[in-house]
Simulated assay, not measured.
Amino acid sequence: MHLFSRYELIAPEVKLLFDNFTPLIFTGVRLPDGRTVSFYGLHPQPPQSWSQPITMRDAHLLTAALRAHETQVPSILAGDFNAVPWERVKRRAMRIGSLLDPRVGRGLYPTFDVHSILLSWPLDQVLYQDEFALLEFKRLPAFGSDHYPILASLCHLPAAAD
C-alpha cells in the first residue's frame, strides 16, 4: 500500500495491528493554511470465500473509526474497505467515528470489478468528519487496475460542522 500526498505528512505510521500482511496508514496531513488533519489509509484483506469470517476486516475498519473519534483533529478514512456501504460494519464505523459518506444521496459509484458489467461493487470509499465540506465526488475512468479510482475533493471548513 502506498500513500502519496501533495501536502506534508506529519508522523506517518504504517501499522500492522492484527497480522503481518494488512497495513493501516495513520498520519497527520498539514494543510496549506498550516492546520493539521488526520488521515487513515485502509485496505483490509477481503474474505476469500462466503464461509470465511470477516472479523479481521471489521477490526481494521472499526479501529480506524475509533482512532478518528479519539483524535482532536478532523479525520478522513479512505481506501479499499473490502466492504460495501450497506454492510453493518461500515454503518457502525460511521457512527463510531462520526463520519460522513459522500455517496449518501448521490448514488452507489461502484468501483470493483472494472472487468464486469453486471457485478460491480462500491468497495473503495472515502469517509470524513463534518468539519470537511464535500466539493466533488466522482468515479474516474479505468486506468489498468481491477478497481475504478474515485475522486473526493474535500475542503477543511470547521464551520461546516455547525
Rank of each mutant, 00 (worst) to 15 (best):
V104M: 13
D124V: 00
S49I: 00
H115G: 10
A161N: 06
L154G: 12
A161M: 09
K90H: 15
L118E: 08
M94H: 09
L157I: 01
N82W: 05
V89N: 09
V37N: 02
C155R: 15
E70G: 06
V29D: 02
L118R: 11
L123C: 01
R88H: 06
N20F: 02
S51I: 11
P23H: 01
L77Q: 00
P110L: 07
H156P: 02
R88T: 08
L66I: 07
R91S: 10
P149Y: 04
I76W: 04
A93M: 10
Q125R: 08
D80I: 08
P53R: 12
D146Y: 03
Y7A: 09
P85D: 02
Y40D: 08
R67V: 05
W121L: 15
Q129S: 11
A11F: 15
Q52F: 09
D130L: 14
A68W: 09
T36A: 06
I96E: 03
Q129P: 05
M56L: 08
G105N: 02
L62I: 04
R95N: 13
Q48M: 05
L119D: 11
A68H: 03
S38I: 00
P23K: 04
S120A: 14
T36G: 01
R92L: 10
V89M: 09
K138G: 01
A11N: 14
E136G: 05
S75M: 01
V29H: 05
V84D: 00
I10M: 05
R103A: 10
E70A: 12
L108E: 13
M56E: 10
R106M: 08
S116Y: 04
S49W: 01
H43T: 05
D162S: 13
L31Y: 06
L16M: 10
I150C: 08
L157M: 10
F21E: 11
S38M: 14
H156W: 12
A11G: 09
H43F: 00
H69T: 09
H69D: 15
I76Y: 03
L100I: 01
R95H: 12
W50T: 10
A83H: 07
S51T: 08
P141A: 07
L61Q: 04
S38R: 13
R95V: 10
V126T: 15
A83N: 04
L99A: 06
Y7N: 07
G144I: 12
S38H: 12
D19L: 12
I117S: 14
E131F: 09
G144T: 10
E70H: 10
R67F: 13
D113W: 14
A64R: 08
I76N: 07
V84E: 04
Y109N: 13
D101C: 11
A133C: 08
L151C: 09
F132M: 11
H115R: 15
Q45C: 13
S5Y: 01
H60I: 10
T71V: 00
L135S: 09
T111F: 04
D58A: 04
F132R: 03
G41M: 03
R30W: 12
D33T: 02
K138D: 09
Y128E: 04
A160N: 05
L66D: 10
D113S: 14
L157P: 06
E136S: 15
P85T: 01
L140M: 07
E136I: 01
F21R: 15
P46V: 05
F112G: 02
R106W: 06
G28M: 03
L119N: 12
S145V: 04
H2P: 01
L108N: 13
R67Q: 15
S153G: 09
T36L: 11
I76M: 06
P85G: 03
A93F: 12
Y109I: 07
E136L: 14
H60R: 06
